[in-house]
Simulated scan of single mutants.
Amino acid sequence: MRRSHLTLVLAAWLLLSSAPALAQSQDASQPIDVTADQLDLDDRAGTAVYTGDVDIRQGTLQVTGDRVEIRRNDAGEVSRITATGERAYVEQRPQPEDELMRGWGRTIIYHVAERRVELIDRAELHQARDTFDGGYVEYFLDRRVVQARSEVEGSERQRVRMTLNPEQN
């Protein structure tokens, strides 16, 4: 397939299937910009796998990693984004008035419909001025709920650490 044709097919696939669900409402109307060294797209399986210094951006949402897989559900909407790498990264401003949420881990799984982020292995979450570290950190964007554990399957124990900063007047 010619590169320009592949680019158009990919852009249409992403925009038609994911834009309304990926991020906050302002993000959904923004263009999706993807850079990577390689793309493997399987429309029937509903997957797009990007490899090699992947950087995906849409509005306030950014996902980076050595490998990023985007999965669609049966309705054609993006259901899960999985980023892996030595320090995979995700950031998003949950609502326009909110502070930026930033997270790192060797694996990051963003469950789009639930607006839930899992940070796995050397997990680190920064929300406002607070930080959470551990083997596993889970963050619910809309409810602002954090759950952290020291144990992560297949890895050494990584104690949970939390730093909460007082409100500034």
Score class of each variant (00 low, 15 high):
residue 21 A to Y: 00
residue 12 A to N: 14
residue 127 Q to D: 13
residue 154 G to V: 04
residue 68 V to N: 08
residue 1 M to V: 14
residue 159 R to G: 11
residue 132 F to W: 07
residue 75 A to T: 12
residue 45 A to C: 05
residue 49 V to R: 10
residue 144 R to A: 10
residue 95 Q to R: 15
residue 65 G to S: 01
residue 3 R to T: 11
residue 73 N to D: 15
residue 78 V to I: 14
residue 105 G to R: 07
residue 93 R to V: 10
residue 23 A to R: 00
residue 72 R to S: 01
residue 98 D to S: 08
residue 51 T to V: 14
residue 93 R to K: 15
residue 109 I to S: 09
residue 126 H to I: 13
residue 84 T to D: 07
residue 138 E to F: 04
residue 169 N to H: 12
residue 135 G to A: 01
residue 105 G to W: 04
residue 134 G to A: 07
residue 43 D to F: 06
residue 26 Q to T: 14
residue 22 L to R: 03
residue 163 T to P: 00
residue 65 G to T: 01
residue 3 R to P: 08
residue 147 Q to F: 08
residue 67 R to Y: 02
residue 166 P to K: 09
residue 37 D to I: 02
residue 47 T to S: 12
residue 149 R to D: 15
residue 137 V to M: 02
residue 53 D to N: 13
residue 162 M to Q: 13
residue 167 E to S: 14
residue 112 V to M: 05
residue 70 I to N: 06
residue 159 R to F: 08
residue 126 H to Q: 15
residue 60 T to L: 03
residue 151 E to D: 10
residue 97 E to H: 13
residue 12 A to W: 15
residue 8 L to F: 10
residue 138 E to K: 08
residue 91 E to W: 04
residue 38 Q to Y: 12
residue 81 I to R: 00
residue 110 Y to R: 03
residue 51 T to W: 04
residue 2 R to I: 11
residue 41 L to K: 05
residue 70 I to G: 03
residue 155 S to N: 09
residue 100 L to N: 09
residue 151 E to T: 09
residue 21 A to C: 10
residue 152 V to L: 01
residue 87 R to H: 11
residue 55 D to C: 10
residue 137 V to P: 06
residue 142 D to S: 09
residue 127 Q to E: 14
residue 140 F to Q: 11
residue 104 W to F: 12
residue 81 I to M: 07
residue 50 Y to W: 10
residue 41 L to N: 07
residue 84 T to G: 06
residue 93 R to L: 11
residue 150 S to Q: 10
residue 108 I to F: 02
residue 54 V to L: 06
residue 64 T to W: 00
residue 79 S to P: 01
residue 134 G to T: 00
residue 26 Q to N: 14
residue 11 A to W: 03
residue 132 F to D: 00
residue 110 Y to W: 06
residue 46 G to H: 04
residue 101 M to R: 07
residue 88 A to R: 01
residue 113 A to S: 13
residue 114 E to F: 02
residue 25 S to T: 13
residue 38 Q to F: 13
residue 105 G to F: 02
residue 154 G to F: 00
residue 37 D to C: 11
residue 33 D to R: 15
residue 10 L to N: 10
residue 27 D to M: 00
residue 59 G to D: 03
residue 43 D to T: 13
residue 134 G to W: 08
residue 41 L to C: 08
residue 142 D to R: 10
residue 108 I to Y: 00
residue 36 A to K: 08
residue 141 L to P: 07
residue 133 D to Y: 05
residue 64 T to V: 07
residue 125 L to K: 01
residue 46 G to V: 07
residue 36 A to N: 05
residue 51 T to Y: 02
residue 146 V to L: 05
residue 159 R to S: 13
residue 143 R to A: 15
residue 57 R to P: 04
residue 145 V to H: 11
residue 85 G to D: 00
residue 92 Q to I: 09
residue 126 H to F: 12
residue 153 E to Q: 12
residue 94 P to R: 05
residue 12 A to T: 15
residue 19 A to H: 03
residue 130 D to W: 02
